[in-house]
Design a protein around this nucleic acid. Structure first.
Lengths: 332, 332
DNA sequence: CAGTCTCCTGCAAACGCATGCAGTGAGGAA
DNA sequence: TTCCTCACTGCATGCGTTTGCAGGAGACTG
């Protein structure tokens, strides 16, 4: 193994016949260098294969150009999409994404956030995961801006980017009601999540507005197996709902599978089904899932803007909830 | 904004009445410290909220404890799964994952790899993406071990972890033949990928062994829209195949959608369909896709082991292709 | 009690870079 | 010519750690 020694700015400096400062300035946009030395340096750098060491620069400037991302559920296809968008968007701004997987326990999140802070990240995005207010404090103490993605914290004034989940729930209710359904059920997500609470609240509001009550309720915790169990409990009985709103698409797929494959029910004839998120596979004909669309792109753009502003020193407040839309497909 | 100043090892040292070296040693496993000072330091550190700066440590030791991951297709559900496994597995070893999205062009990969190297990563995993041998050389020059995940490079002796794609293709062929199908088609992935080539080679081998030729061939490039177009070209004709092997599950879903929803064909009665990967949704009843299972967990474990060995200085050679298995479901 | 060993500790030098400061030279104005 | 300005450059310092080295203090042996 010909472990070639690492090539530093000094090597380039020597080869170009200038000082280390000069080569540093060549790689620092906006610094004062003559075109003559710049080209000498560039040539030497290229010949030696030199590129500035981001870590060393980070130490000095205090800016690591890396953003920490905590994420929990990658099996819910919404999050891979978001990750992809986020990463592309941040790369465009010269940042990169350090990914941390969190189990769902608060302890774990705590632990993970500590680890992230060790990397001197310039910012922190928490997706699908909440943050203890204690932890939030520690982040602020480290001067690391954090934004919650698709989750909000009631108590604190934490920066959060969310869709209008309440309106989404309302749209779902209105749609099912407009279809003439009356025995309407709800399969909830994880009760600790603000998305779950808001979607349910909006949904209930819609039912109430039509003078209806909830016919049945189960909780699926945003997990596939739990959602399927929930569906069985709710529908494997003669006195079953004729419509159901499921708190996200991922669970809705499982519910639809149970309805059609296990219980032999027809969707939407026997039961109308509506999900939330509009993940790509919701559009696939095998499911053709009617759903409430969250605009992932807008959410990501908003998140990145907010985060970068905050990093730039601008005090920023949580943006308004982003609009959602009913996407009518075959299932309702 | 009460931008609390960053707390350094010196602060801790002063508070604990010791030197910086002492606190450093407390946080360096295996260093020589008395229990007495260790506890003093730990207490001071806790009180001040001190944690060692990973970046500073990285500069000195040359080990950043971060692994670069380049990935291209996150819409193919195989890769989110892998990312999750990879990240968890590496976190367990004290590493973290810096994610880079690559477009599919070689230029872009080149560019992305350069960026990664700037971060002084300890290792590099390239998933779903190939590497020019020139780039490989540069990595080796930087002393950064790289392993290709689910892709191999014919030319170079690059470390690569792959399944036995050839055997997978063979299994697919054998199975379709055992079903009595004779007009058998193939929808290829991106022709630049070794997975595509190997799967097709194994498949052809199976057909030949049964004295059959390929009835039809189209290419889907591992992209959903292209796969659907390919399916239309292949099946929207009276003289159509009675079975088709699709180079991965992601495309197979699209193909099945076209067959059933657009062309009104029955699967498997009219056409038997078999995919590759065994992504989680292949098991969902709406598709119930017969497929060749790649053992993602084993692939990840193997990858991590190889990478860590290489980082540890052990020269390592590409492991043998990992076993695959036919998963019989409803589609064939 | 002297000598030796062991264990622990602090000093200082790195790691690779950015940046304030002072100094150089060239060019322009008077 | 002289003085000032301005664009450029190098020196030296510092970012927050780790670590080789040498010194100090006990502990142990004889």
């Amino acid at each position: 193994m010909t472990t070639t020694r690492k090539v530093t700015s000094l090597d380039v400096a020597k080869r170009a016949g200038v000082s280390r400062s000069a080569v540093s300035r060549v790689f620092t946009p906006g610094a004062s260098v003559s075109e003559r030395t710049a080209s000498k340096v560039r040539e030497a750098a290229h010949a030696l294969g030199y590129r500035p060491n981001v870590l060393a620069r980070a130490m000095l400037t205090g800016k690591s150009k890396i953003i920490g991302l905590v994420v929990a559920y990658l099996d819910n296809h919404f999050y891979p999409t978001v990750l992809e968008l986020l990463s592309e968007s941040l790369e465009r701004e010269g940042y990169h994404v350090l990914v941390f997987m969190a189990a769902h326990s608060a302890d774990d999140v705590e632990d993970v956030v500590s680890q992230i802070l060790d990397y001197q990240v310039d910012g922190l995005i928490l997706a699908s995961v909440a943050l203890s207010s204690d932890m939030a404090k520690r982040c602020r103490a480290s001067g690391v801006p954090v934004v919650l993605f698709n989750r909000k914290l009631e108590a604190e004034g934490e920066l959060a980017v969310v869709s209008d989940n309440r309106m989404g729930g309302r749209l779902a209710a209105d749609h099912l009601i407009s279809l003439g359904r009356t025995r309407i059920g709800y399969i909830a997500g994880w009760e600790g999540a603000s998305t779950q609470r808001d979607r349910e609240a909006g949904f209930m509001e819609g039912l109430r507005a039509a003078g209806l009550g909830l016919f049945a309720r189960e909780v699926g915790d945003y997990r596939l197996p739990r959602a399927k169990e929930a569906a069985r409990r709710m529908f494997d009985t003669p006195d079953r709902p004729d419509a159901v709103f499921v708190a996200n698409d991922y669970m809705a797929f499982g519910v639809m599978d149970v309805l059609r494959s296990e219980l032999g029910l027809r969707v939407p004839e026997d039961v109308a089904l509506i999900g939330f998120d509009d993940v790509p596979s919701a559009a696939w004909p095998a499911y053709s899932l009617t759903t409430i669309k969250q605009d992932a792109e807008a959410m990501v753009t908003t998140t990145v803007n907010a985060l970068l502003s905050e990093i730039g020193g601008t005090e920023v407040t949580s943006p308004a909830p982003l609009p959602v839309a009913l996407i009518r497909r075959g299932s309702a």
